[in-house]
Structures are given as structure tokens and as C-alpha cells.
């Protein structure tokens, strides 16, 4: 986990005392999350599983009958196979974002959970990493189920699709990391609504349901700056088999998201609970 090691080196060099960052025990935080999920909210979790499947059935199969095929890198693919990888990236994103925003907000502002954790030998990086990995797992769970549905419906067109699994883990990690970082700076429910305000248009417009080329040049640049577009492109290339070295740019985008998110989350938790 080189990103994490980097964060420790970077932030922890001068601080070994009250604000010491890392005890190497983020699994205790994940253990807590697993027990909490098991006893209280596993039903809520399941609901997120079906959302992308419903989109796939209604748009991919229903609308797909009208649309026919779409060109990806010169290759004509059925419409359902075009949007399925995008919905897969969205599933990873949504799972990660649910856990790292609303759940984290509640824990910081109301349950004072992290205050209790940080009175033990845990450091803020243990808490940040544990919570983010947990959110990642949720994103991964959604993504893997969706990938199975795609396989059953014959929408994975290439053996490269196997790599879609680590790709969605990366995407979920990136979104969870940035989601928790942003949430840790927000103070009210109104501010939390801004997150939804960003998420919905990003979901609709990130070349999810049609190719990027329908936009004028200037709009394309904006879309290409958004994280979901990188996720959609990455996964779509893998499941349709249109693979080239350019994909590494998308990977790099998420690695940066992870590093930035972890750094700010850790910094913020320390400022909030270890003054």
C-alpha cells in the first residue's frame, strides 16, 4: 500500500506525540464497521445493489432496442454493452460515496465515534484508512454483483473484463477517500446536500449513456476533468476490449485522488479531535 506509506512519511515525520498518525491498526476500525453493519443496516446496504441493475434493464434493454449499436474505438457494440461498464463504475462510486459521506458525517457530528477511537492507541490515519477501506468494500460489493449480472447477460465482450475488478476497487477507493475528506470539512446538513447536487449531474453527463463526442469541445474538457468520466472510460475500455496504454492516465487520476483524500482526511481528523 505505497500510497499509505507515502502519506505516513509525508505527514508523520515530525509528529509522533499527541498527533501521532498511525498505529497500524486500521483493521480494528474495519472490524467495528463490519459489526455495526451486521447488526443495524445491512438492509439499507442491499438497496444500493439494485439501483444500477434497474438502470441497466430499463435503459440498456428497453432503450437499447431503439438505439441499436454505439461505436467504441471503431468497434460497434450493443447499447446495453455500452452503458453497462459505465453503470459498473457508477455502482462502485455510489457504494463508496454512501459510506464515506453521510455515514461519516453522522459519526463525526453526532455519534462522536472518532473522539472515542482517538482516545485509544489508534491514530487518525488508522481511522481514516479503516473507514475508507470499509467504504471501498461496499463499493466493491456492488460492483462485483453488477459484474456478475453483466456476465450473465453477455455484456462483457472481452477477457480484459477480468481487470475491471481491480479497476472498480481503485475507483471506489478514490471516491471513498475524497468523499470522506470533503465530509470531514462540512458542518451542516445543508452543506451535505451539495454532495448530492454534484453527484447526480456527474452521473448523468459523464459519457455514461452516450459517447463524449456528442459534446462541443469546451464541454468535453470539463467532463474529462471529472473523476467519474475517468472511471467510466477505464471500465468501458476493459469490458469492451479497447485497451491501450492511455488507460494508465485514468489509473493515475485515481491514485492521486486516493493520496489527496487520505492526506486531507487524516489532517482534518487530527485537527478535529487531537488539538
Amino acid at each position: 500500500m505505497s500510497v499509505v506509506d507515502h502519506a505516513i512519511e509525508h505527514r508523520g515525520a515530525g509528529r509522533r506525540g499527541v498527533g501521532a498518525l498511525y498505529a497500524g491498526n486500521s483493521r480494528a476500525v474495519m472490524y467495528r464497521g463490519w459489526r455495526a453493519t451486521r447488526s443495524t443496516n445491512w438492509l439499507v446496504m442491499l438497496s444500493g445493489l439494485f439501483e444500477p441493475i434497474f438502470y441497466l434493464l430499463s435503459l440498456g434493454i428497453g432503450l437499447g432496442a431503439l438505439v441499436g449499436t454505439v461505436a467504441v474505438d471503431g468497434q460497434e457494440v450493443p447499447y446495453a454493452a455500452f452503458i453497462a461498464p459505465a453503470l459498473l463504475a457508477v455502482a462502485a462510486m455510489n457504494g463508496a460515496i454512501y459510506d464515506s459521506t453521510w455515514n461519516v458525517f453522522f459519526k463525526i457530528r453526532f455519534a462522536r465515534l472518532y473522539e472515542g477511537m482517538l482516545a485509544t492507541s489508534l491514530g487518525p490515519l488508522d481511522v481514516a484508512l479503516g473507514e475508507i477501506l470499509l467504504a471501498l468494500l461496499r463499493g466493491a460489493l456492488y460492483a462485483v454483483s453488477f459484474l456478475l449480472v453483466m456476465q450473465v447477460l453477455g455484456l462483457t465482450l472481452s477477457w480484459w473484463a477480468l481487470l475491471a475488478l481491480p479497476a472498480v476497487l481503485l475507483i471506489a477507493f478514490g471516491f471513498a477517500s475524497v468523499g470522506m475528506a470533503i465530509t470531514s470539512y462540512l458542518k451542516s446538513f445543508q452543506q451535505m446536500d451539495w454532495i448530492n447536487f454534484v453527484m447526480l449531474p456527474m452521473f448523468l453527463f459523464s459519457a455514461t449513456f452516450y459517447p463524449l463526442s456528442v459534446y462541443p469541445e469546451a464541454i468535453q474538457r470539463i467532463i474529462q476533468a471529472l473523476p467519474l468520466w475517468h472511471g467510466v472510460e477505464l471500465v468501458r475500455s476493459l469490458t469492451t476490449g479497447a485497451v491501450d496504454w492511455g488507460l494508465l492516465w485514468h489509473v493515475a487520476y485515481f491514485v492521486v485522488m486516493i493520496a489527496v483524500g487520505l492526506t486531507f482526511t487524516t489532517k482534518r481528523l487530527r485537527a478535529l479531535f487531537l488539538d
Partner: peptide, 19 residues
């Protein structure tokens, strides 16, 4: 600041794991 998402005994189990 007890963990209200966990049961009583779980609060102790989980807290011990933090150490």
C-alpha cells in the same frame, strides 16, 4: 460517546480491539 450502532457487549469487544 458509546457506539450506538453496536450492542452493549460489542462496545467492549470493539473498544478493546482499538488498543
Amino acid at each position: 460517546n458509546l457506539d450506538t450502532e453496536l450492542r452493549v457487549r460489542e462496545n467492549l469487544l470493539v473498544y478493546g480491539r482499538y488498543f
